[in-house]
Simulated scan of single mutants.
Amino acid sequence: MKGFEYVWKKKWSYLMLLFPVLYYIIFKYIPMGGLVMAFQDYNIFRGVFDSKFVGFSVFEKIFRDKQFWNVVRNTLMLNLLTLVMNFPLTIGLALLLNEVTNARFKKLSQSLLYLPHFISWVVVAGIAMNLFSVTSGTFNHMIKAAGGDPIPFLSSNGWWIFTYVVCNVWKEIGWGTVIYLAALTGVDESLYEAAYLDGASKIKRIIHITIPMIKPVIITMLILSVSKMMSIGLDAPLLLGNTKVMGVSEVISTYIYRIGIEKAQYSQSTAVGLFQSVVNIIVLLAADKFAKKIGEEGII
């Protein structure tokens, strides 16, 4: 009875909580029932309940497909390169913003850095085409004006990877600083004052005070980033990619799109999605365990 009285007392809080709970139940948990298609010879006319159950034969078919392992390799490669470039730059940018003392300039800088995150990948891809196109791209116009040969940014495998990473970093680096800036606000100012009185330079204060104080946040964000190594958004590789660079631009999300939407192979696309999720969970647990082994708190 006391529990009911407490809930009634906090009824408005629980009512506000009801909507996000319903969202996750309806759009996240209920659709998980569709994972059974990964173990069926799914027929769209028979539905989930009447389609033939075939066990792991769908997975066996996928694992024998060379294209599948190619898209796994591409997904890991693009995510790893983006992480290697984006993660340290995000921390460095947050540290630089934290050192800005002019409040108006700091707010303006943050607004400009956050803006690309809210730009659609359709727009970003259009900007990339205008900048990196061989025939009409701004960069290639400048290169040709300087007497150089045009660079196939979007039609050569190596240059396409470079362009993809640059676009991703530009789009997300500013937004990634939000959490680090929030963590930096919790650093005790008296530590900086004591270090300043001891003669520590600004660089030494950053190295010996700022970074150690936000290290738990850095470790947590790194674990979460590593746990998404097998996941990649559909928009960027689909919009930036083309037939000339399919060898590196075809990733798991585009592979699922092509076999699931274009070829209507629902069992295979569901199996690939399930494989992707299982691997991400395994990587998350492994990264968390490794963090704890080296003396960090981890996230689980």
Rank of each mutant, 00 (worst) to 15 (best):
F49G: 00
M221S: 06
R73K: 05
P31A: 00
K11F: 07
M1Y: 15
D41A: 11
K2G: 05
W160C: 00
I282C: 12
G158E: 02
T254L: 07
K2D: 14
I219E: 06
L35T: 06
S277V: 04
G186Y: 07
K292L: 02
S51E: 15
I294W: 10
L284W: 12
S249A: 12
I209F: 12
P237L: 10
V278F: 11
Y192K: 01
Y257H: 01
M213D: 07
N43D: 15
G233V: 08
F45G: 08
Y29A: 02
S269Y: 08
F275G: 00
L184W: 07
V36Y: 15
A287F: 08
D50C: 04
I252F: 10
L81K: 08
V36S: 06
G247F: 11
L115E: 14
G199Q: 01
E189G: 02
I179Q: 02
F132V: 00
T90D: 10
S267N: 07
K204L: 04
K215R: 01
L89N: 05
D288W: 12
R64N: 09
R258A: 08
L76S: 03
T220F: 11
D188G: 02
K292N: 09
G34T: 02
F39W: 13
M129I: 01
W170C: 03
H141P: 12
K171L: 10
K106R: 08
G34K: 06
Y42R: 06
L22E: 01
E296P: 09
S13K: 11
K202R: 13
A125T: 05
G147D: 08
K228Q: 13
M221C: 12
L238E: 05
I218W: 12
F87W: 10
G174H: 02
T135I: 00
G137W: 10
I294R: 00
N130M: 15
N43C: 09
Y255H: 12
L18C: 12
V58D: 04
K292G: 05
V165K: 00
Y192C: 03
N74L: 09
N168V: 06
P116L: 04
L234F: 15
W170D: 05
W121M: 03
S133Q: 01
W170N: 03
G260A: 06
T138P: 12
F19M: 11
V272S: 00
D288T: 05
E172M: 04
E99D: 05
S225P: 14
R64Y: 11
N140W: 12
F19S: 04
S156T: 04
T243A: 15
F45D: 10
S227P: 09
I179S: 02
V279E: 09
K10M: 13
S51N: 14
L284R: 09
L224M: 11
V72M: 09
I143Q: 09
N157L: 11
L17T: 03
V21I: 15
I282W: 08
L191K: 04
H117W: 13
L22Q: 00
N140Q: 13
